[in-house]
């Protein structure tokens, strides 16, 4: 067991770093992508609200594995057209394609989480803001957003952990995260213990993130 870990240490570390970076990036970018969608879902009854609902339903409906294949190999089929549009530099890169799939997926889930917490902010907060003569933008940015974020933190934390697990699918489009490295070492050593080492990595990573989130939650609990 130890030789499978120490003998391949640099590959395990590369995989671990890639998993951590890709999941963190996708959650953070996904959060900012989710904000306008959540606002549209929460406040707009018109076409914007409808579009936001459509976005959420589509990207929560497609399995991430299929979405990754679709974006990566699907775009490859149109490489000539994408070159013409000047977009090929983006789709050419497996990392960008993988990140795009992760962000599209998590933004749909995060939008629903943020919408849920926006909807629970009582009207008295809004009235207070109006009484203080805050503009709608200031009131959103300085008051509503921080409160919504604090309220949404536990489910957003869960989403972060789900994203750590979701990055394991990057391996199918040639991005070697923890799972990808594990599958590579497995295909060379034919040793099942490789997957137990990968499992230990994920367990430690997830428990660490949970611990960090709990501390962070405790600090901003007063706002929620």
């Amino acid at each position: 067991m130890f030789d499978l870990y120490f003998g391949e240490m640099s590959r395990w570390n590369d995989g671990l770093i890639l998993t951590a970076v890709m999941s963190t990036l996708s959650v953070v970018i996904g959060f900012f992508a989710a904000l306008p969608i959540a606002l549209a879902r929460s406040k707009s009854k018109g076409i914007l609200g409808f579009l936001a609902l459509g976005y959420v339903n589509i990207f929560r409906g497609v399995p991430l594995l299929v979405l990754m294949f679709l974006i990566y190999y699907g775009s490859g089929q149109f490489s000539r057209e994408l070159r013409g549009l000047g977009l090929w530099w983006f789709f050419r890169d497996a990392y960008y394609c993988g990140l795009l799939a992760l962000v599209l997926n998590t933004a749909a889930y995060q939008a629903e989480i943020i919408r849920g917490s926006l909807d629970t902010i009582s009207t008295s907060v809004l009235e207070t803001n109006a009484a203080l003569n805050l503009t709608r933008w200031t009131s959103f940015r300085r008051v509503l957003l921080p409160i919504a974020f604090a309220k949404a933190l536990p489910p957003l934390g869960n989403e972060y952990i789900l994203m750590v697990k979701a990055t394991s699918l990057l391996a199918i489009i040639t991005v070697f995260d923890l799972m990808g490295q594990a599958r590579m070492i497995f295909s060379e050593t034919f040793d099942l213990r490789v997957y137990y080492i990968a499992a230990a990595h994920y367990l430690v990573l997830v428990l660490l993130i949970e611990w960090g989130l709990r501390r962070f939650e405790a600090r901003i609990k007063w706002m929620a």
Binding site: N57, G61, V66, G74, Q77
Partner: peptide, 19 residues
């Protein structure tokens, strides 16, 4: 060698099933 067609199609099927 038609990835867009087949993955696109099954994406639609999954969305319909979920809906």
């Amino acid at each position: 060698r038609q990835p867009f067609l087949f993955f696109g199609l099954i994406s639609v099927i999954y969305v319909v099933l979920v809906t």
